[in-house]
Design a protein around this nucleic acid. Sequence first.
DNA 1: ACCCTTGCCGAAACCGGTTTCGGAACAAAA
DNA 2: TTTTGTTCCGAAACCGGTTTCGGCAAGGGT
Lengths: 368, 368
Amino acid sequence: MPNSSNAGPGRVRVTINDLAAALGLSKGTVSRALNDYPDIAEATRLRVRRAAERMGYRPMAQAQAIRTGRARSLGLVLNAGRSDAHKPFLTDFLDGISRGASEESWTLTVATSEDEADEVATMTRLLDERKVDGFILPRTKTRDMRISLLRGRGVPFILFGRTGDATDCAWFDIDGEGAMRAAVQRLAGFGHRRIGYMGGLPEFHFSRLRRQGFLDGLAGAGLAPDPALMVEGVFTVEDGAVAGLRLLDHPQPPTAVVCALDVAALGLYRAAIRAGRKVGRDLAVISYDGSPEAAVSDPPLTSYAVDTRAAGRALAEMLIANIRGTAPEDLRRIVPARLIPRASDRLFARVTDAPRETTQGTITTTLA
Amino acid sequence: MPNSSNAGPGRVRVTINDLAAALGLSKGTVSRALNDYPDIAEATRLRVRRAAERMGYRPMAQAQAIRTGRARSLGLVLNAGRSDAHKPFLTDFLDGISRGASEESWTLTVATSEDEADEVATMTRLLDERKVDGFILPRTKTRDMRISLLRGRGVPFILFGRTGDATDCAWFDIDGEGAMRAAVQRLAGFGHRRIGYMGGLPEFHFSRLRRQGFLDGLAGAGLAPDPALMVEGVFTVEDGAVAGLRLLDHPQPPTAVVCALDVAALGLYRAAIRAGRKVGRDLAVISYDGSPEAAVSDPPLTSYAVDTRAAGRALAEMLIANIRGTAPEDLRRIVPARLIPRASDRLFARVTDAPRETTQGTITTTLA
DNA sequence: ACCCTTGCCGAAACCGGTTTCGGAACAAAA
DNA sequence: TTTTGTTCCGAAACCGGTTTCGGCAAGGGT
């Protein structure tokens, strides 16, 4: 008969001892059968499996952990302090990770922190108590304390994004620089020659990459970068509004702007209104993120979308592989962002159809 | 010397054996000293504590779990299928839970699911593997399968919200019905007599409560409810737009509307535009949620805000108390929502200052 | 017929903690 | 002095698994 002293949740819990007794085998044999050891007869293995299934046996994760050293849990530490741009995607992200993890019977442990120091402290606690086998690090910075910590302790981890020195790092990322490049190319194809840029906070590595992508795009289109048309450090709609105003107030303002984040673009929308211009008519905008708000803005924002759910899933799978021994060098993947063409980047019946000079003239006089 | 075979993360791990050896005590004594057993001399207890501190000893959570039956982890299963209204609050919510949990050295395990069946399956797995000790159940329904499951298995849990039969349930909730009542009272105070209502999906228990609160509010103001001015089942902005149009198309449309959710109100904004009316001038709106989008809408939406972070924290603390033995009946708390007065509920220089009859007339002719 | 593999399983140690039980040392009461 | 009672700690069992080790039995080769 199964386990009589069943304290805690789960009702009558069937342990490996119950299973072994029911089968007339030793618990060691049962364990090895369940874990596919080579020294178990195929017939026995099947008998054990079937009995386990029938009796509803589930190995207690912690009991395994104590011997194997694996909690079978992935750690994710969210920064709740900063207004996080990935808020709207968080559910999708968690969903992706959770699915990727549960497919291998792993789980996701989430913690939060407000600043970088707190982040490291939280991760340390999770590690010390052995609650987690590895970490997913979102929003990687060029110089990231979390990476130093984990590297120093020899703990497996994977970056969502890249970093300055990615030696020994596994990572998954979206090709932001490629998207920026394509955005410039697209705008140049529409006839734009003065293309502005709004980038994110410089400490995040993606800002650096996207900026470079933008510059590469300009070069590819034979355009010279104008520092006056480029602003960095945008991370909220408010930032974007301020920065946008600066761009639009320029004596020779851009006819198009590439934004590294949707929030920046949304801020630019506001700036445009205040400057008496209209996005989609006087000003072309292409952005990046594919956030839901972008779809309902006026005009709907053309944006490069990232599939956050798929990213979460990939991150989970890759981290598990890393924990299981795959070398970090073999765990690096980059996927393209997907363009969602909407109305903000086509200046209907004007820029689009007119030759370049006329375009410039039209815009300029509109502003004057 | 500490543990030489240190597989896995964490570098040189100091175990209770290392500690005992260093102190010249048995590991049982060390354990009891650390856990404040009464049969340990005060001097010894201190000596042990200090050594533990100095050597950086952290008990391995899983090793404790195997004997105590406590994983020291709270479970949260998110429904990723439905477009979740609490998306913008998710970070805050997780942050609250995480803080409440980590104060007691507990952690948060998050999983996702798409439908109700999946939800139950996920929770079952988490329980069977003993990954969690209890659950936080967000978005409770009047008849909730999760509750039946957990009740049946005798697993501790706490509701975020209330439910049909809350016997033996611990819960934490925001006083939505009170907010609805106050909203009606406020609008009636401004002179409104035809007050509409837009409610949420009926299966969620809060919809029921808020609806009742609205009706109570009407009664308190001496107004008779008009079924034609009440719509239910709104859960997205789109729903809200459709429902709003229905309300505004009424031959004798409402001069004010109480919304049970901000998304409903935002939908109503759209409907008003299409109907040629202007919220804050022809139509007063009070809503509930306090979502960030509501602050930047035009006009800014007056809404009852819920402190999701505080809720998360309270839920975590209460669930831990429940797991530790406090009776569910002693773990029930309701806190008021906080009114954030903005522009959407004051019809400047018209309804506000005019007597009731005139108001009605003004609105009506505006529509005609 | 004997030895040597090989296949397969049981026994027992082990992981890192918690908890029970009993007894030594010492003080107070008889 | 003996008895009784406390205080405090060690020894060992226990939790539910995993992993090592050794040995029995069957099969193959000589």
